[in-house]
Design a protein around this nucleic acid. Sequence first.
DNA 1: ATGAAAGCGCTAACAC
DNA 2: GTGTTAGCGCTTTCAT
Lengths: 315, 315
Amino acid sequence: MVSRAYTDGAKISNESRKKVYEAAEKLGYRVNYLARGLQTRQSNLVGIVASALDTPFRARQVKMAAREFIRQGYRPMLMVAETPDEVEQLISLLFSYNVAGMLITSATPSSEIIVESNNLSVPVVLINRETEIVGPDKVQIDIQQAGKLAFDMLIRSGAKNLAVVRPVSPSFSVTGRSDAFVQHCSENGYSAQVFNAASQSYDSGFEVAGKIGLALDRIDGLFCTTDLLAIGVMDRLRADWNVDIPNGLQIVGFDDIEQAKWGSYQLSTIRQDAKEQACAAVDLMLDRIENPDRDPKIYLQTVVPIFRNTTQKSQ
Amino acid sequence: MVSRAYTDGAKISNESRKKVYEAAEKLGYRVNYLARGLQTRQSNLVGIVASALDTPFRARQVKMAAREFIRQGYRPMLMVAETPDEVEQLISLLFSYNVAGMLITSATPSSEIIVESNNLSVPVVLINRETEIVGPDKVQIDIQQAGKLAFDMLIRSGAKNLAVVRPVSPSFSVTGRSDAFVQHCSENGYSAQVFNAASQSYDSGFEVAGKIGLALDRIDGLFCTTDLLAIGVMDRLRADWNVDIPNGLQIVGFDDIEQAKWGSYQLSTIRQDAKEQACAAVDLMLDRIENPDRDPKIYLQTVVPIFRNTTQKSQ
DNA sequence: ATGAAAGCGCTAACAC
DNA sequence: GTGTTAGCGCTTTCAT
């Protein structure tokens, strides 16, 4: 009886429904969605597994994903995991909550856990992660395009001697765009010096800039694979080597985080749209929920050039 | 039988337990925590209601809270709300998921919803929000101490003519610390000019710096109520007025976000520890869950001075 | 349109 | 230590 009042399209008179609502109001009654889910055998809980949540790009990505999930009637549980081990554990936990799906934007989970998600048939979508295991849908930037774009931006702005800064630890998206850049350079008859940074962070950029400073006479165009790296590099290069950017060195970053616009940097960069990414990911998941047996899809995201003041005006 | 295998301290032989586990492994069985919660009438779901998740300080705060919840065996649902209306809606939603409690770090919810949470007896903890309604536990910075500290830092560094930048829209924590600063100035025989910024953001800082630039001859010490404001102010003041910081103007920020350390800023600031804040909040909530009838508590957080390069060395 | 009963996956309580 | 049963809050089905 009460149940029908809260079920759309159930057979109940408006009169009764109104009565139920009034009584509910008085008693502070709420439908228990968890119990409902038990019966209907579906859940509108989803999981978001993320690392480095306090990093500008990731924060934006997660915010957008959470909003979109909520907008679509799903409730995201937030799992923040830094290490691969943690990722595994938390994913495993999510299984026990009967999540309708999960979105992963952190370390890539191991193949076993992906297999498990296949068996339990909970949809997984990976953002900017690579894995050979089939099953999960994926949202990825077009790393080839990204590499080409970085090359084009620097060359068209007049740079001739190229270099790239990338984190040491391999990652589909970040070292991937570096590789694509290098490859594109050599295909076009340029060589690119590569600098390895410890991670993707500002600090790593600041640190590796020590090495870049030493090589300044052989470089006039630098692709930094994340904006944070770029900003760290800029700060160090200006402070310790008094480098004039863009006249002494041109820099292109990647991500287009909020800070790239800041007056001290005005970084020319390549934007990956966090909102588009997040929405694509939840769309894929919802689509998979409706249609569990379809083949895995990849949403390939196009990346766009943003010219600010760390590159020279192209003629 | 199966149930006992997964219940700590249940009467079951190790042998049986092992058998159950093995069978579970083979079948891919998982305990359904939602169903368990239905029976035990308790849930380890909690809600985190946050706005401006893509802002450095908030991102860190939410990350820490989520991690701490997970560590303690709770599962946070993330609700991102920008407007007060959204906050209400999402809180209301959370009630239907039988959350064990909720942590709010966004616009302050209206009193009705607080009353409702009291009635449903779901613990609420507010971070840096004020409300006259009793019920919720609170974690707050000590705004009096904050105001005094900002004053002391500037005065001890040799500033004589003080000013403060604050967002127009009143907020317990942010305009509160501004008010405390102004009050503390006047108690000590100083006057403080106040500049109103549109919001707490970098852009607002950048914008209001237009007005500050005009008043530069009457100011040598500036308290910016958030680091983002401070950074925006610095960028504009350097670019358009060529101000020498700290020799021409000393600046103290608030929060100690990651970017405050960056080479271009090296902002002297007042740190509120996001991790401490988050942990205090979840502690309060868990304590309230165990002891639902205790009186509301306030955790008053002490704030600490960080001297970098936007203030002069005190003698 | 309404009432009654069964059952979702689980635990608690009571027998043995 | 183990088997059985009732019931958490809900929806669904089958009567009425």
